[in-house]
Nucleic acid binder design. Sequence first.
DNA 1: GCCAACGTTGGC
DNA 2: GCCAACGTTGGC
Length: 154
Amino acid sequence: MSSWLVKSESSVYSIDRLKRDGITAWDGVRNYQARNNLKAMKRGDQVLFYHSSNEPLGIVGLATVVREAYPDELQFDRKSDYYDPKATQDKPTWFSPDLKFAGKFSAPLELARLRADRRLAGMALLQKGSRLSVQPVSDKHLNYILEMAGPLEK
DNA sequence: GCCAACGTTGGC
DNA sequence: GCCAACGTTGGC
């Protein structure tokens, strides 16, 4: 089993929104490396939820994969910002898994704190200039982060 | 296939 | 709001 981290601007899609929705399609990702990571997600994988661009920057909760990646409908929707004229129903380019809310951290694990923690050295999130919005996370890092987060709010 | 120009991400 | 880092596009 693998673990992952997804980034989202809280003003676009927040952990509270996921909590309300329960399950959501993780669609609209338009970067090949991120897409490949989405396609590699398996049912039951754990996914850290990170808020980018809005304070506080940090990991704010946890989700699980409940449906493995299937074609992202938005690529076929001419009215969508995520429309891709090169994609066809036969040969979709973009895929999205369904993620389910698993819990919110009682307080965000802020980026500055994560950066300062030597036990998280090497984490993709902390790599200089990393913009990848869907990243793999090692078991060691996942377990440590969940330990730091403490009990999850459901 | 190279690479300059351009657009986007996202921390600061 | 700035700008570094990085991905994508398109001319050649």
